[in-house]
Amino acid sequence: MEGNIAILGYGLSAIGPGIGVGLIFAAYINGVARQPEARGMLQTIAFLGFALTEALAIFGLALSFVFR
């Protein structure tokens, strides 16, 4: 076996954000299903939360290339 263990680190760092993004969009779908007229406001909040959560995975990706 050969390769770079930093890639494993990226894989680990993607678990948390993966779950987090799932939770955010689950809450968004729930919110729109309960109150369809709030869609516009919820969409902004959902994408905002998505962006903030996704940043963690992006950190992992950047670091896996930094520490090769």
Binding site: A51, A55, A57, I58, L61, A62
Partner: peptide
């Protein structure tokens, strides 16, 4: 840092 890295990381990956 997150503002720059988010855009960079998505396009790079």
């Amino acid at each position: 840092v997150t503002l720059a890295l988010r855009l960079f990381g998505n396009m790079f990956a």
